[in-house]
Write a protein that binds this DNA or RNA. Structure first.
Lengths: 166, 166
DNA sequence: CGAGAATGTTATGTTACAAAACAATATGAC
DNA sequence: GTCATATTGTTTTGTAACATAACATTCTCG
């Protein structure tokens, strides 16, 4: 969020203001989207710091996680899962391939598509990556107040998402 | 574990997590940050569509809401509240001023700073804006399952944010 | 007064993201 | 089998969000 030293940043996170004052003008603390955005930025900030040593960004992390658990998927399939345009997926995959973590193989039946797989080094990398992620996730769960609270949060976010599935 | 009810079919948002721990590699559905991001994108998408007629983006909405409820604040104060760099706030405020919705006034004691206020047209605009927002927010609350669920979501998001305030 | 900080601003760079066009290949109607 | 159409990966391009540095003006305070 704000990594600058001298800057002050106090997001509006106060207690719920029961009634909207000022003729229906919403207070920032009552706006779901505002809170969601601030929380997402905070979580991503923690993520990015956690993975600064591994030089891994959130999108790259998610791609590696999918390739690790479901090897052989095509580029457009993975891009579709993550909501990434396949045009923008190219450079991302180029990076992973250049680092020797993942590779494109010729798909069996279809000569247009590439099936994606981890390299041996990529498999080792995913192990380290997963450990780092676990620390990050544990930190978030602690802030939430425990695993049950995490589950409740996931459940609520799923309710927002379920009616929206692509 | 967050795996209880919902068995989705399509993409990733529905955790297919049974005991799907491939050597600690997280499933996307179990990642707080991933779910947060997807939910935030969905909410912003709904917001942007809701405000397409008013041609108002989320950042502009939040600035107008602050000016409406707390007129007279300085640019750097509002930028600080919203986590916007004051350098980037300039163009945003220029736009609001050019549209005749808000204005910079010379601050009383300090000739460097500007105090921000709504114009008369801006006040009318904020009324319409608030009505549109209420529809947007009600839609989200309905997805969540009611106002009580909304409050629970806000509470959980606040837990993530509270420990993050400077 | 004079050094340093704050404020608004300009300029610039980086990154995420979307849209359009294209070659190669696949698919399906006929 | 042929041909129109769709899909896949890719390149190119544009836009919006976001950060950083530098600057002039003004304030603060020792």
């Amino acid at each position: 969020m704000n990594t600058q030293a001298g800057e002050k940043s106090k997001p509006i996170t106060g207690p719920k203001t029961g009634a909207a004052k000022d003729a229906g003008v919403p207070a920032l603390g009552d706006i779901i989207g505002y809170k969601l955005r601030r929380a997402q930025l905070m979580v991503f900030q923690d993520f990015i710091e956690s993975f600064s040593q591994l030089k891994l960004r959130p999108a790259e992390f998610s791609v590696l996680a999918i390739i690790a658990t479901q090897p052989g998927l095509k580029q457009s399939e993975i891009a579709g899962m993550l909501g990434i345009k396949r045009a923008n997926f190219v450079a991302l995959m180029d990076g992973l391939e250049k680092r020797g973590l993942a590779e494109r193989r010729k798909a069996d039946g279809d000569r247009r598509s590439h099936s994606l797989h981890l390299t041996a080094e990529g498999a080792r990398f995913v192990k380290k990556m997963s450990a780092v992620w676990q620390g990050h996730e544990d930190r978030l769960i602690a802030r939430l107040g425990g695993a049950e609270e995490r589950d409740r949060l996931i459940t609520l976010l799923d309710r927002l998402l379920d009616s929206d599935e692509d």
